[in-house]
Amino acid sequence: MQIRVDFTPMVDMNMLLITFFMLCTTMIKSQTLTIALPSNEKVDNVENMSQASEDDAVTIILDAKRKKGSMDVDTVNGKVVPVVYYYFGKPGGAAGLGNSPESIAANNNLQVSEFLSNDEKTMQARGIRAIIQERNKDVLTEINALKKKYQDGGFGSLETKADREKAQMAYDEAASKVRKDENLKKPVIIIKSTPQASFGSLVSVLDEMQINSISKYQIDNMTKADSIMVIDYQNRHHE
């Protein structure tokens, strides 16, 4: 006598269970971005504060696109559209901002840009990335040379996994040396943000720092001059 058990219902049930577990599982782990901020304590001794020289300083101000004729944040497809302002050196440039509306409008050195990825065909940087790259080109040339050296096996062979890790470490060390090299001209980037700017754009700008190998950047609060320039810019470029 032959005994046969029909396993079809068993398979059905297993499939259901598999579906349940597949849907409940999180396979992708979140990524993180580490940031270090200065302490909140007031620095009494001004000499201890690190001062960026005027030609090195680049201030980036993050903002969000506003609805027409109002200060409310506009969204496109449920996403806040970031606006990036930037200026070099001091607010108002060498002449300073002045107090009268005319002098503010004349000396306002605020410019606008946006977050764009590299051009798909030419791989050229666009938007704010192009501006940061231009300011940091000394360091980037060195870093790119190191990258090429790494790919050509200049830091050791890339055959096995262990070799690759070794070469990667040597590369990282050399790259970090270049980033901190005092002889190279590199910008100091000050990141500021209006209260309306989105958290996403803050992460985007921190990404740009990483992409462009910026070693000196800080997150700071808006000053009065910054706010005046942003408002002045918005008033003059109102659609």
Binding site: Q31, T32, T34, F199, G200, V203, D207, Q210
Partner: peptide, 12 residues
């Protein structure tokens, strides 16, 4: 969470 190029994995 916002997209980023950072590849550092979150601590478990």
């Amino acid at each position: 969470t916002p997209p980023s190029v950072s590849t550092e994995k979150v601590q478990e």
